[in-house]
Design a protein around this nucleic acid. Structure first.
Length: 563
DNA sequence: CGGTTTTGACCTGCGC
DNA sequence: GCGCAGGTCAAAACCG
């Protein structure tokens, strides 16, 4: 233990009050505070008190040394004043040991040492001792001050930790969004390309079958690719705004993708006007329909909360509906092409119809991901089942019916011109007549959709996403000309008719099991007793495939408009 | 003061 | 070509 120490003054000069002065104690590596009692200018003989305050945290092991330290101080003091009966250091230490009052404030880490020494216990001179109450108050003040300082430091440290955690959370959130969308796109596009290639082979009479992909979704992207003309330039000739999310895939065709998206939003009229050289492709571009996803929900609010930030840019009274239609665009990122229309239903004004169009070019918060993913998947499903064929626009409703059971009024897919639209209806209560198969129903854990729209919407992306894994099977069902091809693709044999194909699909236990497993996994691995997952495809008389779904509070229905 | 909403004007596609 | 309807623009108003 180091014996050296530094002290401002000991004993203090007579003309100098060392109140609140500090000295550095090399032994503890910290500053010590000399209290007024120690600096009392009274003669050192007799009783005196001193107090030492440090900010040491682990000071217990220094106690003996402190005793020695103060004993030496007393010795020095006595020697300097040439006391006749000055005690030696051992005596002083003994006195200190007997009369010391050591207070360690464990909580604050402040070490307070109060030593009452007296050279002779019989001699008590209260006149030279400071008031004990003042001393106590001063000790408490010091302790509180140190505590406050320590608390401030702790607060600052916690703030830093919070900022760091927030930053990490945001980073992970961005990454999660990116990964989710990447996987979703890859799964869907893979099946689309697979089916498209097959479709092209079936139409081998044409040397070049235009392949056109249209992927749309709030969380996804609109993509368009035509083999004959894969490049679409922006009206201004500049690069469109790149999406950090949507560019994760389709790397080889991202230019086309983004251009198609931008052009779709800018309007084909502007493209043709500003870039007449592309007139050859205008007809092709005209076929790039803007798919939309419409969500019907009961709400008294002027707009449903979907997690995104919107700015209203217009309002119009549409024909046939006295309620004005409001136009919003996404303002979460500059240049985001996503827009939506909000309008109340003319028949039931408690129903709010929100129509989304376009795809975000920025990561979405989790709250927005729910709706964005659901609409994205719905639109993807729609468009994947409505690829051009010799028959023209293909109805996708059968596709929707195929995996959304008890389907009459939850999700309506319409590929009719001008824009293909899928409508997710969250306003309907289940029709018991639609679900007469208690053994073959899966139950969605929807709460009352009128009151818990967010929770319902949050489940939609998973439902649609899982359904995408099976959609190619049903995509084939959409097109009478492609039925056999689709069946061949999926089952490796030729299906003789639509009914046969449907029967083949619905009889496929693998499909049933896969769909049930998918839904089960979505619903929490099937462990939730509230989730009754039983799926059996139902073949309807119009050739559609349906799985049954029922829930007391919410349901999913997909209708076939019979196109 | 910056962002948002309002609202009339404007543009475009489409049907006749 | 004209009118209609849907959609968008942009200046003014509004708001926090």
């Amino acid at each position: 233990m180091a014996e050296s120490f530094v002290i401002n003054s000991f004993p203090p000069p007579q003309d100098h009050q060392l109140y609140d002065q500090y000295f550095y104690d090399n032994r503890v590596g910290n500053y010590c505070k000399v209290e007024p009692a120690l600096m009392d200018s009274s003669p050192p003989r007799g009783n005196f008190q001193f107090q030492l305050s440090t900010s040491m945290h682990d000071h217990d092991h220094n106690r003996p040394d402190e005793m020695d330290f103060f004993a030496r101080k007393i010795d020095d003091h006595d020697r300097d004043h040439d006391h006749d009966n000055a005690s030696d250091g051992d005596d002083r230490r003994a006195l200190l040991s007997r009369s010391s009052e050591i207070d360690f404030n464990v909580n604050t880490g402040l070490h307070l040492l109060t030593a009452n020494t007296c050279s002779d216990h019989s001699i008590v001179d209260d006149g030279i001792s400071p008031d004990s109450e003042d001393k106590r108050a001063k000790n408490e003040l010091v302790a509180l001050q140190a505590d406050l300082e320590r608390t401030n430091i702790e607060n600052h440290r916690l703030k830093d930790l919070l900022n760091e955690a927030t930053s990490n959370y945001n980073t992970l959130q961005m990454h999660l969004v990116t990964v989710m969308q990447q996987q979703s796109h890859k799964a869907a596009d893979h099946e689309l390309e697979q089916f498209s290639d097959l479709h092209a082979r079936k139409n081998s009479g044409a040397s070049e079958v235009p392949r056109q992909f249209i992927n749309l979704g709030l969380g996804g992207q609109i993509s368009s690719e035509t083999d004959a003309e894969p490049s679409l330039s922006s009206p201004e000739g500049g690069d469109p705004i790149r999406s950090p999310v949507s560019n994760m895939d389709h790397l080889s065709k991202e230019d086309d993708v983004d251009q198609a998206s931008q052009n779709a939003w800018m309007g084909s009229n502007k493209v043709s006007r500003l870039n007449p050289s592309k007139s050859v492709d205008q007809a092709t571009e005209a076929t790039i329909r803007k798919a939309r996803v419409s969500v019907r929900a009961r709400s008294e609010a002027p707009m449903i909360t979907d997690g995104c930030q919107w700015r209203k840019y217009g309002q119009k009274i549409a024909k046939g509906n006295p309620c004005p239609r409001a136009y919003y665009r996404c303002t979460m990122a500059t240049g985001c092409p996503v827009r939506k229309q909000v309008q109340r239903c003319a028949d039931d004004r408690s129903i709010l119809i929100t129509t989304y169009e376009g795809n975000h070019n920025h990561p979405l918060p989790p709250a927005a991901m729910a709706m964005a993913s659901s609409t994205s998947s719905a639109a993807r499903m729609l468009l994947s089942g409505s690829m051009p064929s010799a028959d023209g626009i293909i109805n996708s409703n059968v596709l929707a019916r195929s995996f959304l059971p008890c389907s009459n009024n939850m999700a309506t897919i319409s590929a009719s011109a001008p824009f293909p639209t899928v409508t997710l209806d969250l306003t309907q209560t289940p029709n018991p007549l639609d679900c007469q198969r208690p053994q073959n129903q899966f139950q969605l854990p929807f709460q009352n959709p009128q009151q818990n729209f967010a929770s319902s919407a949050a489940l939609l992306p998973q439902i649609f996403s899982h359904a995408l894994h099976n959609q190619s099977k049903f995509s084939g069902l959409q097109m009478s000309q492609d039925i056999e091809a689709a069946a061949t693709l999926q089952f490796g044999h030729q299906a003789g008719s639509l009914a046969e194909t449907v029967n083949a699909l619905t009889a496929d236990p693998n499909f049933t099991a896969a769909l049930a497993a998918a839904i089960s996994s979505v619903m929490g691995g099937g462990s939730n007793p509230n989730n009754n997952v039983n799926v059996t495809p139902i073949t309807t008389n119009n050739g559609s495939v349906t799985t049954s779904n029922n829930n007391k509070n919410g349901n999913i229905k997909v209708t076939n408009s019979g196109n």
